[in-house]
Every structure is written in structure tokens, then in C-alpha cells.
Design a protein around this nucleic acid. Structure first.
Lengths: 223, 223
DNA sequence: CAAAAATAATTAACAATGTTAAAATAAAAA
DNA sequence: TTTTTATTTTAACATTGTTAATTATTTTTG
């Protein structure tokens, strides 16, 4: 009875790995039962012995992709010293992950999730992905008084939604047209949300912040 | 030669009308060539005499839906007196339009637009839809000094992206779960963006604004 | 170890999709 | 009224997700 379980998990793993590879390489539109099964080395109908349907299979990838995203963000920001700059870098790395894998963005935010078994947890994981990945940075900035604790909830929420909208327009609507312009808009938005809530940055310093953001576009930084 | 043109436009109209009805009633997932053609009273292949493919047809609906959205926003906010409250009401009505017709949201923001003939204009229309629909209100608030003119660009951009992210999570990820909660979050976000930039509302008044937004959730206002 | 039972995997099949080519119908011109 | 042209429809194809029937493989049992 234990072997059964092990073998079943192994089989599931083959299909999951194939689906993940395909999703990262070709995107959601290229995902199909026959495609996945072929890459896994089985017939298409075999998939249905281990998953209720295609929907269940692809949404089982979410957990792994979340871990991968988290790992990548941590790797990019590892050397940076803690503080607001690192927090911003983490948010940027989070965005870059989805730009690198648009198929994962689709899976996370646009593909309809039907009746996956653990639907609720998957939705929670997706919705809080940005917050939980940046949790340490938020906590550091808050505990050292770099950010006002009573406004962090609002800032998180603003960032989550703004970044989601920004990514959606960039990935699905080619707006803005280039990655450089995307980064520019990204910086404006992030700085407007974070810097404007900085303890010291009231009336006087605000406009400067935003203008600086517009100027501080680094070219050739990524992709 | 003129009759030819008229008849062709008429035929296109039948298919477009059918597609629009279907999209509003059933959503994008129920859109199919055979479905549209049946509703239009023709065979499925006839559609290809008037449109290059399905993609062209459905993205030709965008213009009409934009007008309809604009009309609905104006109708809802017509009686309100000009000012910031009316501006907020317009933004809210814009959001409500997409909540009423999730299929139109999908069409505008998530469906992949392939090679529609006027692709560029369609993308422009979609991207600036919120701004252009609320243009009068922005202009009024600015010219009467209710909002600082040098920050309106930033505010528009923040609103556009935040609202898009909010709608995406609500419509495609059931987050938040209820419409009441959606309106609550909507108010928090909109107020945080608009009120915090108000000329008079600096350091002192800000937190109050946000908290009020959390409280001022109107129940049973819509849908 | 060989026959029977249970399990696993594959092929066949179905309905629905977008799209194209051939056939049939309707309209216009001669 | 016949011929030509334009329009609409039916047939067909490839691809999709999914299920049922069939085959191959493993496990159990005598």
C-alpha cells in the first residue's frame, strides 16, 4: 500500500514536470493533454488516471511556480543590504519573473480555475504571493522605522494591485511597448507608493521623488 | 458599387451584433464561430466572407463596448454635481460596467489580440478608456484647483493600474469574495490615490481619509 | 511455476473548436 | 432564358478535452 502511493506520486510528477516545462517554454496556449503526455512519455489518456482533468493538473503547478519565483527573487536580492532599496528590488524581481515566464502570469492571474480540489488555497497563495515573498523586507523596514507600520497594509495592497495592472497591460496589451518603458513606469509607480509614505517625505519632498523615478531608468538591466 | 458597400456593412453588422449579445450574456468562453453565426441567422462559414477570422470579429466589438461603457458611466453620474465626488463616482461606474459584463473585461484586458487590422488603435482605446471616459471630470477638478495639475498624470496612472489589478483579482480570482468587499477595497484604493494628493490634505489629514474609506462601505448599492 | 484476477496503459471514438475547399444556391448580366 | 458572377452552405480537416473499450502488464493465487 505504501508502494502504490510512491508510484502514483512518481507518475503525477512526470506529468507535472512536463506541464511545467511546457508552460515555461511555450506558454499556456500551447498546453494540451496530448502535448503534456507526449513529453511525459505516456499516452494522452493515461493522464486521466492521475488527474481529474487538465485544469486540476495545471493548477497543481502553481505551488511549484510560487516556490521558484520566491527562490529567484531571493537569489537576485541576496547580496543587497536590507532596507527600502532591497524591498524595491524584490518587487522588481517578482515582476521580472512573470515577464520571463508570461505563461506563469496567465496561469496565476487570467486562466479560469474551475474546480481544482484545493482551489481555495491556490487562490490564497496567488493573491498573497507578492506579500509573502517580500515579507521579510517589509518586516525589516517596519521594525526599523523605515516605513510607518500603520500604513504598510495600504502600501502592500496598492503595490499588489498596481503591479498586477501594470503587468497585465505590458504582457497582454503590449503597453508600454518596450521593457525599458515598463521599468520606467514600474519605478514611477513603486516610488510613488513607497516614497510618498516615507516618514520624512511629506509635503516638501514628494514631487522630487516622483521626478527622480522618471529619470532613474536603467537601460539594459535585464532581458 | 455603393450598394455593395452598404450590404456588406449590413452583413458585418449582423455578425457583430450577434457576437456582442453573446459576449455580454455568456462571456468570452461561450463565443464560437458556430454560435455567433447561428445567432446571426447564417451558416458558420459565411462569417469568413466578412471577417478574416474570429479574432478580427471579436476585437471589432471593442469600439462599441467602449461607447456603451462611456454612455453608462455618463448616465450614472449625470445628476451628480461636478467635483471630486463625481470623479470618484465615474471611476466606480467604470468598474461596475466590467463587473456587469465580465466577458467585456476579458475581451479588453486578457484575451490575446492576434493580428487585428487596427490593432494599434484598439490597444490605445482600451488602455486609455478610463482616462478618456473620465476626462471631463479630471479637467474640471484641475481647472478649479481641486486637484494639483502637476500630479494628475501620476494619479491617472496609479488609478488605471490599481483598478485593473483590483478588477482582475475580483473577476478572475474571486478576491475579494463578495461585491461588498470589492467596493470596500475600491474605496480604500481610490481614496488613497486621490485624497492623499489633495492640495490641503498633507501630513495631518491623511490617515483619517483612508480610515474613513474603510468605514464608508455602502451595502446593497449594486448587483 | 502457471492460470486467474486485478491493475495500468493504449487505442478508438465523440463532441466541439477554428478554418478552408468544394458544392449548391441565388442574383445579375447577356 | 441562358450564362456568368456572387453568395451561402455543406463537407472536410486538424486540433482540442474527455470517456469507453481494448490491450498489455503486473500481482495474486492454486
Amino acid at each position: 500500500m505504501k508502494n502504490k502511493e510512491i508510484q502514483e506520486q512518481r507518475m503525477k510528477g512526470y506529468f507535472l514536470e512536463a506541464a511545467k516545462e511546457l508552460l515555461k517554454a511555450e506558454g499556456l496556449k500551447s498546453i494540451s493533454v496530448r502535448n503534456i503526455a507526449e513529453r511525459a512519455g505516456y499516452s494522452y489518456a493515461t493522464l486521466y488516471s492521475y488527474f481529474r482533468d487538465l485544469n486540476e493538473l495545471i493548477f497543481l503547478c502553481v505551488q511549484d511556480f510560487y516556490e521558484e519565483c520566491k527562490e529567484q527573487v531571493q537569489q537576485v536580492t541576496r547580496k543587497k543590504e536590507k532596507g527600502i532599496k532591497k524591498l524595491k528590488a524584490a518587487i522588481r524581481a517578482y515582476a521580472d519573473f512573470f515577464i520571463q515566464y508570461p505563461g506563469i502570469f496567465d496561469l496565476f492571474f487570467t486562466e479560469t480555475i474551475g474546480n481544482a480540489p484545493n482551489k481555495k488555497q491556490v487562490l490564497e497563495l496567488i493573491q498573497h504571493s507578492l506579500d509573502s515573498i517580500c515579507e521579510e523586507d517589509w518586516h525589516y523596514c517596519m521594525s526599523w522605522g523605515l516605513l510607518p507600520g500603520d500604513r504598510i497594509g495600504l502600501m502592500k495592497s496598492q503595490l499588489r494591485h498596481s503591479l498586477l495592472g501594470l503587468l497585465l497591460l505590458y504582457l497582454n496589451r503590449s503597453t508600454p511597448a518596450s521593457y525599458v518603458d515598463f521599468v520606467s513606469r514600474f519605478n514611477v509607480l513603486v516610488n510613488a507608493i513607497i516614497d510618498d509614505h516615507l516618514p520624512g517625505a511629506m509635503a516638501a519632498g514628494r514631487q522630487t521623488t516622483v521626478n527622480n523615478a522618471l529619470i532613474s531608468v536603467k537601460i539594459g538591466n535585464n532581458k
